[in-house]
């Protein structure tokens, strides 16, 4: 028995612990490691700076507590929160509405203008890659301070997010039903409305809910650059060193984001 085991082991091939690494691969690993380490060295906080920051953080926390509970102030915060939600909802709704045609025009095999799909993909990528605070600055300059600039920012941000996922969901929609309608003589638009959208609907709704969640988070900070909402109140509280008010606003933001995530999560679960 022992001999048999010995023979079997002798016949088995030797498996290396690691695959062979070429000179190029090794060089690449070294370069990637060097980039990470040099970045950490250049901009990460030193232990001394972290230690020095602790008392200042404790001091700030002390000045923030207890959060402001003045009814007049809380009333103002409430209406700012309502405005924030309005920015998020209106911006998401407009963005989703515009994402549907843009997503359609960017979807390979679905768009009625196949040679130009890459142009719409590029447009969506552009909307997505420019940060929302930069869009907010642009719209504050073009349409002025306030909620309208915030709504337009969320709208463009939503197109960047939903346009991509709507297009992909349309590309992944069941091809058999589309080909059947094409054989019947249905137009591309009829195929979109009759077959592609119904089939992609769960994905479209899921993406919309994520976009709404994202919009609520974005809309609370847009006020920092003057684009309306609760962020504007938060900025003025910090600017005026009213830290107790800032703490109350931060708690309100935390609550509203939490509630929104809970609601969208519930909706997603019921959808699935």
């Amino acid at each position: 028995m022992a001999d048999h085991t010995l023979n079997r082991r002798d016949n088995l091939p030797i498996i290396a612990r690691m695959g062979k690494v070429s000179a190029l691969q090794f060089t690449l690993w070294v370069v990637v490691g060097a980039v990470i380490l040099s970045s950490i060295y250049a901009v990460s906080p030193s232990p001394q700076r972290v230690v020095d920051g602790v008392p200042r953080l404790a001091n700030l926390m002390g000045r923030m507590l207890p959060p402001e509970t003045d009814p007049q102030f809380l009333g103002r915060v409430f209406w700012r929160l309502v405005e924030t939600m309005q920015i998020a909802i209106a911006g998401t709704a407009l963005g989703v509405l515009l994402s549907l045609p843009i997503g359609w025009l960017s979807a390979r095999g679905i768009s009625p203008f196949q040679p130009t799909t890459f142009l719409f993909k590029a447009l969506i990528s552009f909307f997505r890659t420019v940060p929302d605070l930069v869009w907010a600055l642009i719209f504050v300059i073009t349409v002025g301070l306030g909620a309208v600039a915030g709504t337009m920012t969320i709208m463009v941000d939503t197109i960047g997010f939903c346009g991509r996922f709507f297009g992909e969901a349309m590309e992944d929609a069941d091809k058999d039903s589309q080909q059947a309608l094409e054989a019947i003589g249905a137009s591309k638009f009829s195929i979109l409305c009759g077959a592609v959208i119904p089939d992609a609907m769960p994905s479209l709704i899921n993406t919309t809910l994520f976009a709404l969640e994202k919009a609520v988070r974005s809309s609370v900070v847009l006020g920092l650059v003057g684009a309306g909402g609760i962020g504007q109140e938060l900025k003025s509280s910090f600017d005026l060193f009213q830290y107790r008010k800032a703490a109350a606003i931060m708690l309100a933001i935390f609550l509203i984001v939490l509630v929104m995530e809970w609601v969208t999560d519930k909706l997603r679960r019921s959808l699935n």
Binding site: D174, D176, S177, Q179, A180, L181, I184, G185, A186, S187, S190, G194, A195, P198, D199, M201
Partner: peptide, 18 residues
């Protein structure tokens, strides 16, 4: 080759598309 998430009636109406 029907639209799975649509009703039977909607799928039959699709026959008249075009």
């Amino acid at each position: 080759s029907l639209v799975a998430r649509a009703t039977a009636l909607t799928n039959v109406v699709h026959g008249l598309l075009g």
